[in-house]
Design a binder for these strands. Structure first.
Lengths: 344, 344
DNA sequence: CGCTGTCATGTTAGCGCTAACATAGTTCTA
DNA sequence: TAGAACTATGTTAGCGCTAACATGACAGCG
């Protein structure tokens, strides 16, 4: 009986979605021609292409990108790994990357390490498992195993945010120099007793680099460079707490150099609540150039980091590499700009 | 010659990465046993499992998730589609989703529509092509084609942010009611001449829903409900511009109900620069409960929306569904809370 | 003791697509 | 005008993995 024969064949779940084969049949061509009509239209006769596209619409075909990636051993994924989504800085870098990549039909695969480089390693493994076309990570610090994975994966690897001894491509700015720049500004304004206030510097090691620059300049000019470390990353509350601690632990301080604008803005707002005059009684400086600080009165003195540009330039470098072009400069310094407000 | 024979076989590029087969050979088992050892460890003898895991380490195996997804017709992707990354609100919802899903080994696939529902449709197609396990979209408005795609894709579809006539699952809050709530508060405080200031209401239609609620209450109490529409979505600059326009177009206004906290905070800061007393000369209210507004002096009166909770609850509902459990309540109202500051 | 059930592992056949090679028709070139 | 070069399309064989079914060993049971 034909019944027996039917039960002989093994069936798979079959997603019931129309496949390229069905499109091809509907258009009266072979599967590969349908594939080419969609992916490399210039290699197919215009007439044929039109028939295929009509068939796609008619049967409601949605390409199975998983199958395509497996067959071609490459996906149009760009893995992006950042330490946190709570920080506006990374969001803006991601925006720059997204703008650049989405225009070229790439999809961002976003990973969040929560400032844990073990998690970063796991994310890299996962993303490599998805045959991503390239990887972008925020920062140069990785576990040894992760570094090896990235070195041998044979894909463009971009490290953004800070400059240094990178694995492959590198777009960022010199954080130590940024720290020096702000310290020099404070000295120029006559502040000799500046306190640097950071938060979780083992995690936010770029803030530590800035502190290194700050200290270098301060000590070079014969001043001390005290450091206060808060236990909560960039938030307005933490900034207020930072101001309190400076007043208690360094009552003679005349300026506070905060590791970021969130802290600095929190301190500025808190100073206002306390009736403390800024910068007469205490000067306040930040880092990043986020919008809120620029709308306070007094305006926050800070260092503007070109975050969206960083993402865009990183994206462009990667695209150039993916297009098989030579990338002449593997390291790109996007620089920064001192924004002098009235808070110093 | 053996040469001929070699040239007879067709070769594929082969990514040079070790495959599961090699792991299996190294462990002295079959490929499927190695697969099970990694994916369903409870179905493999402990001794065998250990041998496989050792082999994985030894050969440096990174699972090819693309192949796995194709074979099993499901990926561990959750597609998340939001209108913008510039808005902290969506970031926090994403954070809630990410926390929930990453703990279960799912990966977020993030898409950004830029407030364009045609782009949303394209993103939905792409993500379905990746055999994502579920889709999350911000909002209930889609193109007709997109709606059909979502209805027939046979995967959990979650619409977050606002409540309403949803396709499948729905977690959010009642924006019209939130608008009513704030309007009632303004009336209670004695403000009779409130202006609602929104931005790009055709894009930010949830702000329009809140305006509808606002107007309903205002007109119900015999007051007018003028509306000013700005052409820039939530930013401090736009908020300052909004305040200026109210002063020019409605000089008799005693309160401004802003569509979001960014606008409201911008207005508050601008009022301070102008020397305008808040709330004596003009009261200011916002929506969202973002951190900056709560640190200004006066504190911003606003409506707290539980954004991260919204993401978490949405994630939990989806996981329940993916685990094959019944989801009893397909619609979940996360509510909101009126935060009364000194700005009204 | 044969039957049933359970556990651990293996064999086979795809998932849906595209790279590599093949073929036929057409145009160009020496 | 032979054959090289190019164009448009087709055939075949996987990509690396897992679902479905198969097998064999052993325990429990009346």
């Amino acid at each position: 009986m034909s019944n027996q024969e039917a039960s002989r064949t093994r069936r798979r779940r079959g997603s019931a979605q129309p496949t390229l084969k069905e499109v091809a049949a509907a258009a009266g061509v072979s599967a590969i021609t349908a594939s080419r009509a969609l992916n490399t239209p210039e290699r197919v006769n215009e007439e044929t292409r039109k028939r295929v596209l009509e068939a796609v619409d008619r049967v409601g075909y949605v390409p199975n990108l998983v199958a395509g990636s497996l067959a071609s051993a490459r996906s149009r994924f760009i893995a992006v790994i950042v330490p946190s989504l709570a920080n506006a800085v990374f969001i803006e870098v991601i925006r720059g990357l997204q703008t650049t990549f989405e225009a070229q039909g790439y999809q961002i695969l976003l990973g969040n390490t929560d400032y844990d480089i073990e998690r970063e390693h796991r994310l890299v493994r996962t993303f490599l498992g998805w045959s991503c076309s390239a990887l972008v990570t925020a920062g140069l610090r990785h576990t040894q195993a992760c570094r090896e994975l990235l070195e041998h994966c044979d894909k463009p690897v971009m490290e953004v945010m800070e400059l240094g001894d990178a694995l492959d491509l590198n777009v960022g700015l010199d954080h130590r120099e940024a720290g020096r720049c702000m310290a020099r500004h404070l000295l120029e304004r006559g502040y000799r007793r500046s306190v640097y206030v950071g938060a979780c510097l083992d995690q936010d090691y770029r803030a530590e680099l800035r502190f290194d620059g700050h200290r270098e300049v301060m000590e070079g000019a014969g001043n001390e460079a005290p450091l206060i470390e808060l236990d909560q990353l960039g938030s307005l509350e933490a900034g207020a707490a930072g101001l309190e601690r400076v007043r208690k632990e360094y009552p003679e301080a005349d300026a506070i150099h905060f590791a970021n604008d969130d802290l600095a803005a929190g301190a500025l707002l808190h100073a206002f609540r306390l009736g403390l005059r800024v910068p007469e009684e205490i000067a306040i400086a930040g880092f990043n150039g986020l919008s809120p600080g620029q709308h306070l009165t007094p305006r926050l003195t800070t260092i503007q980091s070109p975050r969206e540009t960083m993402g865009r330039q990183a994206g462009e470098q990667i695209l150039r590499r993916l297009d098989g072009k030579r990338v002449t400069r593997r390291q790109l310094n996007v620089g920064f700009e001192l924004l002098v407000g009235e808070s110093t």
